[in-house]
Amino acid sequence: MIDETIPKPRVGLFVTCLVDLFRPAVGFAAVKLMEDAGCSVDVPVAQTCCGQPAYNSGDRADTAAIAKNTIEAFEDFDYVVAPSGSCAGMLKKHYPSLFADNPSWQARARALSDKTHELVSFLTDVLGVVSVDARLDASVTYHDSCSGLRELGIREQPRRLLGTVAGLELKELPDADVCCGFGGTFCVKYSDISNAIVSRKTERIRESGAETLLAGDLGCLMNMAGKLKREGSTVEVRHVAEVLAGMTDTAPIGGKG
C-alpha cells in the first residue's frame, strides 16, 4: 500500500543512451516499476550519455564536460536511477574522480554519486520491493553484467525478484559472472577477441537450456543477442526490467528466431 501522506520520492531516470536509441521499452519498464513502487519519476531532457565512451578512451576533458551536464540535469532529484549497472557505476563510482582538482564540482559529483542507483538494486535495496506483479511462462537465465556485479555488488537482487514472476523458471547460467565481451568500444576495436569471448558466452547460454536470456545492461544484451541471432539461436533476449514490469509483448532484442 502506498501511504499518500508521505511525499513520493522524486526519481530522475537516467535513460542511458542505448536504451534511448535502441530500446525505449526498457525505459518505460523502469518507469512503470518505480511508479508501481510509489515513486514520482521524471526524465530530464538535458541528459545524453554517461560519458563512458570518452572516459574509457582516455578523453578526460570531454568526459568531464558530459559529466557536468549530467550532474546539472539531475541536481533536483532525490534519486537518480539507471536501467544499467555500467552507466549507474559510471555516475556513482567514477564521476567524483573526474574533478580531483575542482572541489566545488567534486562536491556536486559526490552528491550525485550518493543518490545514484542501478534500477533493480534501487527497487530491492532502497524501496524494499520484495515481489513484482508479472507473469512470463518461460525458462530464463540471467547474465551478471560486469559493472553491476563487481562495481555495485548486484547479484542476488535480480534473481530474487525474478523468483516472484509467475510462471518463470530460473536456470542458472554457467560462468554467469564472466564478461560477455562487449566492453563498449572494445567490441569494435578488438572485434575478433570480442567475438571469441561472446562465442564462449553463447555456448554457456545454450548449456543453460533456457528459452530466454536476461541481463541488466543493454550493451551486453545487444552483444549477446547479436551473436545468438547470427548463430541462428531461438533464445529470446530481453532486459530484466521488461520481464519484471510484465512488459514482454514487444519483440525481443534482435527479434524472434
Partner: peptide, 30 residues
C-alpha cells in the same frame, strides 16, 4: 528487427547481428 550488415558498423556486424532500434527514441516517446 536486426541488421546482418550496416555501413560503418563493420566492427560489430562482422561477427554478430546488430539489433535494430525499436522505433522512435525513448525521449521522443516520453
Amino acid at each position: 528487427k536486426r541488421f546482418r550488415y550496416l555501413p560503418l558498423a563493420g566492427g560489430w556486424t562482422r561477427h554478430r547481428d546488430l539489433p535494430a532500434p525499436q522505433g522512435r527514441t525513448f525521449m521522443q516517446q516520453w
